[in-house]
């Protein structure tokens, strides 16, 4: 191997194999949106805005519940090489899987014949931008007051230099043996996003899934704190 990605149990950014990158969430950053959030996860910097539920007359609207729409988009300056502003096939696929990851958590029956929009803008991309987008979008949906069974959190696991690692960064994502983003609804023990590319043994796959779930529990705490921070702003000031 030319450039090892793990040396003495430490990864390129100094983490251990089971360590998350720094993760920070802010809630309620866009005035016009029904709900919004900003996440920094590793070098990912992502903004999510929720619009709706809103009246929609589009053909094919669901008459029994709200229709969820999702756009994942990368800013032209978000990558090493400038990215064309037109949506790529990759962005369109990711938009779809993010929607599919969030929808199971939402109670959409309360708003028939309406549309709920999830707009994800990646200002800077790093490994795991779709996972970070899902984590942030779920918080933004809660901020928008869309009823939900549980928050959704996502994280990737993968194999790098033959070792199972959590939360892949850019170089591990590109040069590692495999990458598997997973999203969870922990209360219901459900997986709502599961993708993989590369190669893993069945044992590694199973262990990876468990590793991701443990990390999701930690991410959930960060989501909860972020929401509490916004909604008790005035109350906290009083305590101080």
């Amino acid at each position: 191997m030319e450039n090892p990605l793990i040396v003495n149990g430490k990864r390129t950014d100094g983490r251990s194999p089971t360590e998350l990158r720094p993760l920070k969430i802010d809630v309620g950053i866009i005035k016009n949106a029904a709900g919004s959030s900003y996440i920094e996860h590793g070098k990912n910097k992502i903004i999510v805005a929720i619009y709706g539920p809103r009246d929609s007359h589009r053909y094919g609207m669901n008459i029994e519940r709200a229709t969820l729409r999702c756009r994942y988009h990368m800013s032209p300056f978000s990558t090493e090489e400038r990215k064309s502003p037109q949506p790529s096939r990759r962005e369109i696929e990711i938009s779809k899987v993010i929607r599919d990851a969030l929808e199971p958590s939402l109670i959409l029956e309360n708003f028939p014949k309406t549309m709920i929009d999830v707009f994800v803008e990646v200002l800077q991309s790093d490994g795991g931008s779709r996972s970070a987008s899902i984590t942030a979008a779920s918080v933004a949906l809660a901020d928008a007051g869309i009823p939900m069974k549980d928050l959704v959190e996502a994280v990737a696991v993968g194999k790098v230099d033959g070792t199972l690692v959590l939360d892949l960064n850019d170089i591990e994502d590109k040069e590692g043996e495999s990458d598997m983003p997973v999203a969870f609804m922990l209360n219901e023990n459900k997986v709502t996003l599961l993708q993989m590319d590369g190669k893993m043994t069945v044992e590694e796959f199973k262990a990876g899934l468990m590793m991701a779930m443990e990390a999701a529990k930690k991410i959930k705490e960060i989501q909860k704190e972020a929401l509490a921070k916004k909604y008790s702003k005035g109350d906290r000031k009083n305590d101080a």
């Binding site: 866009i30 016009n32 919004s36 032209p76 707009f119």
Partner: peptide, 16 residues
């Protein structure tokens, strides 16, 4: 190049 993102307001549609 500028894009008024759909995050910006409820009247902004995604697209070119």
């Amino acid at each position: 190049n500028a894009e008024i993102l759909p995050t910006a307001s409820e009247y902004q549609e995604p697209g070119p």
